[in-house]
């Protein structure tokens, strides 16, 4: 699709020489649509998106970080001081370089990484890490034709990924949990049936199940389906339903718990992009 010929780039710091001052000079609502990617991590990010909100008719959260918080938001599991210490070692304090004025100090880190919608009102979302070409196309054809769906729309399917997954399911039973590198998965069979935690059942479709088709489990980058609620909890509930060890009944519970305990790094697996959506992450810092 030819996009560039139909739009004028108003502001694109990564590609064009655009400065904050240029943006400030624009009248309110000057920009038709601002596509914003990345989580809101610093005070500067926050100022920029607030400014963009003011200058733009539409704000589009573009990509998993803007949509859900993304991988950077896994840092929300730790406090700000802990993070700085881990990154820069002991004794480092954020501030301007020696002898430089205060305004040269690096931007202040926010207590948590935020999805865009927690910083400014978002009109549309193009999800994904990265957004699949098809979904980008869907957004632009809607935008350029002037036939946009109702605000709040996420440019992905409402059905879960399994719908478009080419793999086949046989016996829907979880007998073990393995990490992707531990086995060579059967090329045809459902990964979840083979013990690989695939988030396909809770994740929106729209990517043609790219990862499962290539032998890797879905990690949930398109975000939860509209009624999945808390993605990780829904998946935990499904896993707990699927797990089977020997005969049914209470006697099997200890060995079933053992199977569930085989899940290494539950938060990193079940909330890879969505830590800010975790129920416990919604309150307080860290």
């Amino acid at each position: 699709m030819e996009v560039l010929s139909q739009v004028e780039i108003a502001f694109w710091p990564a590609l064009a020489d655009s400065k904050k001052a240029d943006l400030e000079a624009m009248p309110k609502g000057y920009i038709d649509a601002a596509l914003i990617n990345g989580a809101i991590r610093t005070q500067e990010n926050l100022e920029m998106v607030r400014l963009l909100r003011e200058k733009s008719k539409l704000i589009v959260a573009y990509g998993a970080c803007a949509h859900l918080g993304g991988i950077p938001s896994l840092a929300n599991l730790y406090g700000r001081e802990e993070l700085l210490k881990a990154a820069f070692g002991d004794g480092w304090r954020p501030g301007p370089p020696p002898g430089a004025p205060q305004e040269d100090a690096p931007p202040e880190l926010l207590p948590k990484a935020l999805p865009l919608a927690q910083a400014v009102p978002v009109d549309y979302t193009v999800p994904g890490c990265p957004p699949p070409a098809g979904l980008i196309g869907e957004f632009f054809s809607a935008f350029l034709s002037g036939e946009m769906p109702p605000p709040g729309h996420v440019f992905a399917k409402v059905k879960a990924l399994c719908e478009e997954c080419p793999r086949t399911r046989e016996e829907r039973v979880l007998k073990k949990i393995v990490r992707p590198h531990e086995i060579v998965p059967d090329p045809e069979a459902c990964l979840l049936d083979q013990g690989i935690i695939c988030l396909g059942p809770v994740t929106r479709g729209g990517c043609s199940a790219a990862c499962p088709s290539a032998g890797m489990p879905c990690t949930g980058c398109l975000g939860p389906t509209p009624k999945a609620g808390d993605m990780g909890l829904s998946m935990v509930s499904a896993l707990a339903s699927l797990v089977r060890a020997g005969e049914e009944g209470e006697a099997a519970i200890p060995s079933e718990n053992e199977i569930l305990d085989q899940l290494v790094d539950p938060i990193g697996t079940l909330y890879k992009y969505g830590v800010p959506d975790m129920p416990c992450a919604k309150e307080g810092e860290g």
Binding site: K159, E163, R172, G200, K227, S241
Partner: peptide, 25 residues
């Protein structure tokens, strides 16, 4: 079943104690 939402992942069927669920599409 909300057919608009169901992806046919099939997690439900084996849970049913009455074998009331079948999953195609």
């Amino acid at each position: 079943v909300d057919e608009e939402l169901c992806s046919g992942c099939g997690v439900c069927a084996p849970q049913c104690p009455y074998s009331a669920i079948t999953v195609e599409e």
